[in-house]
């Protein structure tokens, strides 16, 4: 769905994406993982057109991503960020139907789509009429996901969607998300810093470090055949965290 060919990106003179080539397969879930500053968020910004590559080319399907097509591409992208990115001055419903209204959808089409999405995301009907500040963190992410799916996007981009949630809510939403991804069969790209989460969702895991892709493949691959010490340490560090957490 996405193809990066030798893409590099500088931010104020510093190389943040270093000659990255990557293919994101259609209909699969790809998890981008790595320590902070490894370039995973920048990769995301490149995919949404919020940043432009300084070298190399990005393809969306067969289309080269540029200023001309970015508007059309964005309509095929659903985007969810850590805190949801819901507009606080609009109710959940207004957030979800914003773009549909903008594109002139008929009222009943909007309503039936919202009903479908509420079922899909298991959101109770009274929540959608609230303002974001009146919702719980988990509810906000569900509404945000509804907004991302409203226009039948082909690609879902999720930037640490569960990062700000407490563990119970997080576990519940993880299961629901996995179920939704399985049912929709969409191309999903997910940024996380949690290896377990990446393993849970990702058909493909892309491990990043210092602006490069260090290793990509299945979780089994990465655990069994780490390509270098960085990967070994990264995997080890996540395990240690888990153990020390268990001892507490």
């Amino acid at each position: 769905m996405y193809r990066f060919e030798s893409v590099s990106k500088f931010y104020s003179g510093e190389l943040v994406i270093d000659n990255v080539s990557l293919t994101v397969p259609r209909g699969k879930t790809t998890a981008l993982i790595g320590p902070s500053g490894s370039g995973k968020s920048t990769l995301f910004r490149l995919m949404t057109g919020l940043a432009k590559p300084d070298a190399g080319t990005i393809y969306f399907g067969d289309q080269q991503l540029d200023d001309k097509c970015i508007g059309a591409v964005r309509k095929r992208i659903g985007y969810v960020i850590q805190e949801g990115g819901l507009f606080p001055h609009m109710t959940g419903r207004a957030n979800v139907s914003l773009m549909a209204g903008h594109l002139g959808w008929a009222r009943d089409k909007v309503e039936s789509r919202i009903l479908d999405l509420m079922k899909l995301t298991r959101l109770s009907p009274e929540v959608i009429t609230r303002y974001p500040s009146e919702m719980s963190g988990g509810q906000r992410q569900r509404v945000s996901l509804m907004r991302a799916l409203m226009l039948e996007a082909d690609v879902l981009l999720l930037d640490e969607p569960l990062g700000a949630l407490d563990p119970m809510v997080r576990a519940e939403l993880q299961q629901d998300l996995a179920e939704i991804f399985r049912r929709l069969q969409k191309t999903v790209i997910l940024v996380t810093h949690d290896l377990a989460e990446a393993a849970y969702f990702g058909d493909q895991i892309v491990l990043m470090g210092a602006g490069r892709i260090v290793q990509s493949g299945s979780i089994a691959d990465i655990q069994r055949n780490p390509v270098n010490d960085f990967v070994k340490q990264f995997v080890q560090a996540q395990r240690t965290m888990l153990f020390s957490g268990a001892q507490l």
Partner: peptide
């Protein structure tokens, strides 16, 4: 995050200003 969400949603710059940015700055 809000500004970028509005961009990625695909709102035109005038729609962003009128529907998102000005209300938030009201």
């Amino acid at each position: 995050g809000l500004r970028e969400s509005a961009i990625v949603l695909g709102l035109s710059s005038s729609a962003r200003l009128l529907r998102i940015e000005l209300p938030l700055a009201a």
